[in-house]
Write a protein that binds this DNA or RNA. Structure first.
Lengths: 120, 120
DNA sequence: ATCCCAGCTCGACAGCCTGTAGTACTACGC
DNA sequence: GCGTAGTACTACAGGCTGTCGAGCTGGGAT
């Protein structure tokens, strides 16, 4: 699954679906994006594209499709981070920089997660 | 400095400049991308765009410009990673995922960098 | 049977970004 | 003065995203 950037609308829609724990239909998604006054087909098109890109899975529900994220947002974010990391020639330097850049409490979280890994 | 994605050629050029410790002129950069047979103006255009996007700084050298990265590659990568992290609602979950995803030796590096931070 | 409607699928088009380059202007060395 | 390196400006095609409209289809209401 190549992690590529998403457009703004695509991301809004992913956010909606990530926030949900049930698969939604296009109509339902559209209702949740009310701020923007989008044509129903717009939403459908984007859902379709996201599916083709592998970000969503869909299953039939009568005539309608129900969409749900193929992956959790956390996984997606972690993949993005790894992909960024891949871009460098010197991974350890980048990791070190990254470590320096995360703020205190988050450094804690990272440390704890890493420590747990060690123990296994 | 908004961290945006770079195109392929843009990235190649950044890679060249990141690999160098001296600012280069467009001509010099062009010579280093020989694999591709690019017109000199192509290189100049891209250098110009990268400068406007804030990825490069340039200073005069006679009539020519000398370009150099505004930021180290490691910083750039770290920023990309942080930006990815910003995209999530639950940063700690994403961080935990990330920690689980980095491979052993790299987890070591991270751990060490983080520990050093703690000590200060 | 028919007609309407929800939903879908396809196709379109504009705007922005990137790759790629040509043209035209401008100093500096000879 | 002229040629040349180097710049700045302009351009254009292709891909991606936002945004829809048109047209097809299956079921339920009449």
């Amino acid at each position: 699954m190549s992690v590529k950037g998403l457009g703004e609308l695509e991301r809004s829609i992913m956010d909606i679906l990530w926030a949900q724990n049930t698969p939604l239909t296009a109509r339902e998604v559209g209702r949740l994006i009310e701020e923007r006054d989008l044509a129903p087909t717009t939403v459908m098109t984007v859902l379709d594209r996201l599916t083709r890109k592998g970000f969503l899975d869909r299953t039939r529900d009568g005539r309608a499709w129900r969409y749900q994220p193929a992956e959790s947002r956390d996984n997606y974010v972690a993949e993005l981070m790894l992909e960024a990391l891949d871009m460098t020639g010197d991974r350890s330097a980048a990791l070190t920089r990254f470590a320096q850049a995360v703020s205190g409490p988050e450094a804690e979280i990272l440390l704890r997660a890493l420590s747990e890994l060690e123990e296994e």
